[in-house]
Amino acid sequence: MNRRLWLWGGAGALLLLFSAVVSLSIGAARPRVPLSDVWGILLHQVPGLSSWTEAVWPVSSEQIILKIRLPRVALDILVGACLSLAGAGFQGVLRNPLADPYTLGVASGSAVGAAFLMLTGMQFAGLGQWTIPVVAFGTGLVSLFVVLRLASENGKIRMETLLLSGVVLQAFLGSMVSFMVSISDKVVNQIVFWMLGSLALRGWPFVGALLPYLIVGFVVLMFYARSLNLFALGERQAAHLGVRVERTKIVVLVVSTLMTAGAVSIAGTIGFVGLVVPHLVRLMAGPDYRLLIPLSAVLGGTYMVWADTLARTVLSPTEVPIGVVTAFIGAPFFAYLLRRKKARA
C-alpha cells in the first residue's frame, strides 16, 4: 500500500512539476521566456539554491513569471485539486460514478451566492475577502440538500434520479444567475466572465485564500478514506463493518461542498473536473480511496494547469474561459461513462 502510494504519488508530483514549468513558459508575453530561464528563475527562489544559479535572464521575465504566471499556475493547481477531491468525495458517499460538483448542482448553487454578492456590491461586506466563499458555501450546501431531497425515494437515491435532479436545479440556478446578469448594468462583464471560469489576473492573495480549503478538505477526506472504501460495498455492509454511515456521509458531503465553494468563488463554475480526474485515477491506480484521494489532488492540479494553458493559448491573445475548455473535454467523457454504466447494468 505505502509503496504504491509513494510510487504513484512520486510520478504524479513529477508530472505536476513538469506541467507547471512548461505552462509557466507559455504565455502571451513577447518575447517568450525560454524553458531554461523558467527553471532558473524558479530555482533562484529556492533558499540555499539561489547561489548556484546565475541570473542571466532579463528582469522583465522574472517579473512576468513570479508576479503573473506563477500565482496563476498555483491557483490552477489549487482549483483543480479542490474540484477533483470534491468529485471523489461526492462519488464515494453517493456511490455514484457520475457525481461531481457540477452535475450535482453544487457548483451552480455556490455561483448563485457569489453572483448575488457581486451584483449588490457586497463582495467584501462583513467578512472581507472571506465573504464570497462563505456565502457560496452556504448556497452550495442548500442546493446539495435540495438535490438530495429531490432525488431520494424512500431514503434511496438512484443514479439517474440524482443526475436528473442535478440538471433541474442547475437549470433553475443558471437562470437565476442570468437574471442577475440582466438586471445589472455595470457589473455584467465581471459576473459573466467569472461564471464561465477564469483564473487570469488573480494574484497571490487568492492562492492564500484557497489553500486552507484544500488543506482542510484533503485532511478530512484522507481521514475517511478507509470508510469510503467500505462504502463501495454498500451502505449497509459498511454499517455492519463498523462505519458510522450517517456521520461519514454528512462530513464528506460538507467538506466536498466546502472545497467546491472555495474553488467556485475564486474561479467560477469550472465543470466536469471532479468527474474526469478521479475516474482517470481509478483507471490507473484502482478504486482504493487511500490512493485515490492524494492522486486525485495531484492529477487534478495537473489537469487544470493544462486546461488553463490551453485556454490562454488556443486563441491567443484572446483567452477562452477555462470552463469552456473543461466542458469540451468533460462532457464527452461524461457521455462515455454514462454509456458504459448503462452497458453494465
Binding site: 463501495a232 460495498l233 449497509r236
Partner: peptide, 12 residues
Amino acid sequence: MLEQEALPAVGF
C-alpha cells in the same frame, strides 16, 4: 452480517 445480496462488482 452475511447479506442476501451478492457483493457489488467493485474493482477491489
